[in-house]
Design a protein around this nucleic acid. Structure first.
Lengths: 184, 184
DNA sequence: GTCTATAGCTTGATAGAC
DNA sequence: GTCTATCAAGCTATAGAC
């Protein structure tokens, strides 16, 4: 028996980083090999389905993390504003102050009609619903709450793109500051 | 003499589409060959520098189009609100109602320290400056004008990402509707 | 200016030893 | 469970005919 060089958690962390930074086509096995320390054949032992299985695992795991650490706090009890502020703290670390990209952005490139699209849409919808709910709890009617949830998603994604494209992290920081005002 | 199968303008149009849809790594010569009708060797005759020269040409040309059709109208005379509305009309067609992505987004993936970064940053800055100027013309002081210019860029880029990730073009349409209010 | 043919490298994926 | 070695297919790029 040969011991594992790297645990499932850390392995998926490293692979997730690659997909976030390079997108699906740019996430080559060479880059993943370099980032994880595992050779090609070892990666196929952990993910027999290859890249497709890797990205599916990455999306599922990230969705779970998002549900537990972002959407969860958003739907708990307590004042809506405090719930949103808690989400912002989690987002700040999740995106490393804007230094990391969002999988929903990088994986939605040139991906017509694949199974990824379904997962991405589902993740977007789950996030949107949670934001919508907190806006309703803050007193907005359904239509206005949905608009503000959409504004919040646009704000987050836009700030990440502008931050990445300019190399300046301030837009992301300012977006997080503005989020509570958008949703409550 | 063999006649050109495709003019420079249309050729660059087609190549630009590929880079917008797939990013740099996803824009393979096979896809470009298919989209342009030119074989590999013919592409290298038009762009001796290969993919690097293609993407540089795409960025330069798109920057010129942006300057003439988006930033130009923004800096002309006339009421600021009308100038912004004119920009929104151009953006609507440029992004095909949200159906096309922004090069500043798709080309900024996994592109640490390349020459592309410089071009992307420069394009972002030019756009930001033009938006900033129109906000000042609308009566905002310098700091507030810069904040609103940043909000506008975040709004546009975020709406494009959300629209692409959800497959629903309404967020982009609503973003364009909100732009005049953000800048004036 | 376009093409076919080809070189050489990288990709995703597999076989089999330890 | 990891590894080296290997495969076919894809990639960027080039040579040379027309």
């Amino acid at each position: 028996m040969v011991p594992r060089k790297i645990g499932d958690d850390m392995l998926l962390d490293r692979i997730t980083e690659i997909f976030r930074a390079h997108g699906y086509e740019g996430a080559s096995l060479s880059r993943i090999t370099e980032a994880t320390g595992l050779q090609r054949a070892s990666l196929y032992h952990r993910f027999p389905g290859g890249k497709a299985e890797m990205v599916a695992a990455v999306l599922e795991r990230t969705g779970e993390w998002l549900g537990a650490n972002v959407l969860g706090p958003l739907c708990q009890s307590g004042p809506p504003r405090e719930r949103v502020e808690r989400m912002c703290e989690r987002l700040k670390e999740f995106y490393s102050d804007g230094g990391h990209s969002c999988l929903l952005d990088t994986l939605s490139l040139g991906d017509e009609g694949s199974e990824l699209r379904a997962s991405i849409e589902a993740a977007m919808t789950a996030w949107f619903d949670a934001l919508s709910k907190v806006a309703r709890d803050a007193g907005y009617k359904r239509g206005e709450a949905r608009r503000r949830a959409e504004d919040a998603m646009v704000l987050i994604q836009g700030a990440l793109v502008v931050t990445r494209a300019t190399g300046n992290r301030k837009p992301f920081a300012r977006a997080l500051d503005r989020l509570p005002g958008v949703l409550t």
